[in-house]
């Protein structure tokens, strides 16, 4: 999907940047992710509307050694369903700074909080679900 603009897979997926390092959490699974190397720069560009094809083309033009790793990284973000095709397909016209990819990007996946996070919030489905259906659980 090189010509697709992506967006964060809200509301299940939430993210926050801490000192330039993103943490991305999938609330539906309790699994969270961090990025190594230039993953933060690539994720930020995607979140701001850069198309994968434009990012990879910028790396290609610059002769960047991490182009293949960047392609794998973007595929991994899509496979993990952290990002999805955006409703608004207006791409960000700002050129991707290939120099930001000085190291290979990588996705780190952690499930050590999953059990705790899944237990914590009450899900919308529980509030919305028909009570007669739930009464049989009594």
């Amino acid at each position: 999907m090189p010509d697709t603009v992506f967006e964060l897979n809200r509301p299940d997926v939430v993210t926050e940047s801490f000192d330039g390092e993103f943490v991305v959490l999938d609330l539906s699974s309790g699994v969270y992710f961090a990025f190594q190397g230039s993953g933060n720069a690539i994720f930020q560009a995607l979140e701001q509307g850069a198309r994968p094809g434009d990012i990879l083309a910028a790396l290609e033009t610059a002769g960047n050694a991490h182009r293949a790793a960047a392609a794998d990284f973007i595929d991994a973000l899509i496979s993990a369903r952290l990002i999805r095709p955006a409703a608004n397909q207006q791409a960000n016209a700002a050129p991707f700074p290939a120099a930001a990819v000085a190291t290979a990007p990588a996705l780190e996946r952690f499930d050590d909080l999953a059990e705790l996070i899944l237990a914590d919030p009450i899900h919308d489905a529980d509030a919305d679900r028909g009570w007669p259906l739930m009464a049989e659980a009594k």
């Binding site: 939430v14 926050e16 959490l25 609330l27 919030p121 899900h123 509030a127």
Partner: peptide, 16 residues
């Protein structure tokens, strides 16, 4: 603690 809320859910990101 009820429902998805992007502002409240940030708390989990801080824990992570």
């Amino acid at each position: 603690s009820s429902g998805r809320d992007p502002e409240r859910d940030k708390g989990y990101l801080y824990a992570a």
